[in-house]
């Protein structure tokens, strides 16, 4: 087990977006023992964010990346947290995440999800990306699943779009964030290969 912990300690995970998915995923990875995290977001914590995001009342108004780094350090001050207060786009993804073992897509908007999936697939053919799609509402635990397409892992129910009637709620968002973190651990600890392990449609 010690060697596995060492493996996690030596890994660096990039987290694109520090909202409901990113903040919860980062905390799970920090607690699990990942040594370095690169967290990226341009936003500030609002009162409304507290319904599902890993922030606290006294952090409202703070930059998300700084608040999240503070929360991670409260759990484990030894983790190396690189915080980037910037809006991600095709031009800066490569530079910001170049030293990461893998990247977690934790955006809210679908166009941003597609942007980082396209950019990482094209520019980092040697890195996995773990994305999320479909997590709004409540219930239907078993609709949340993982499927793999090459270097992309896609987690969620792939149908529940956020709307006024179907808001993102803490339990389901948290489950998907934890599934993303769990997938990251599997990639690192089991040395998943980029080619040959593709089981894209096995479960459907």
């Amino acid at each position: 087990m010690k060697s596995k912990l060492e493996k996690l300690k030596g890994s660096c995970i990039g987290i694109a977006g520090c909202g409901g998915l990113g903040s919860n995923c980062a905390m799970a990875l920090a607690r699990a023992g990942v040594g370095s995290l690169v967290i990226v977001d341009f936003d500030v914590v609002t009162l409304e964010n507290l319904d599902r995001q890993y922030y606290f009342l006294d952090q409202v108004g703070q930059k998300k990346v700084l608040a999240l780094r503070e929360n991670i350090r409260k759990v484990n001050p030894d983790i190396d947290v690189q915080a980037h207060d910037v809006r991600l786009g095709p031009d800066n993804v490569v530079d910001i995440f170049k030293n990461c073992t893998l990247i977690v897509e934790a955006f809210d908007r679908a166009d941003m999800k597609l942007m980082i999936i396209e950019t990482v697939t094209e520019r980092f053919p040697d890195k996995f990306i773990i994305a999320a799609s479909g997590l709004a509402g409540y219930g239907q635990n078993n609709a949340l699943r993982t499927r793999r397409l090459g270097s992309l892992f896609l987690i969620g129910d792939e149908t529940s779009e956020v709307s006024a009637e179907l808001p993102p709620l803490a339990p389901r968002v948290g489950i998907v964030a934890a599934m993303q973190a769990n997938q990251a651990l599997e990639i690192i600890l089991d040395d998943l290969a980029l080619v040959g392990d593709d089981d894209a449609w096995d479960e459907s």
């Binding site: 955006f107 697939t121 994305a131 969620g156």
Partner: peptide, 30 residues
């Protein structure tokens, strides 16, 4: 056939007989 096609290339990438195509829509929320 396992290769990702970027949105900007949808007009100039063609699909032919025997190709394996995956189309998965992405949903907002996070």
């Amino acid at each position: 056939n396992g290769r990702l096609v970027k949105k900007e290339d949808y007009e100039r990438v063609f699909i032919g007989d025997g190709d394996q195509v995956e189309a998965i829509h992405l949903i907002s929320g996070g």
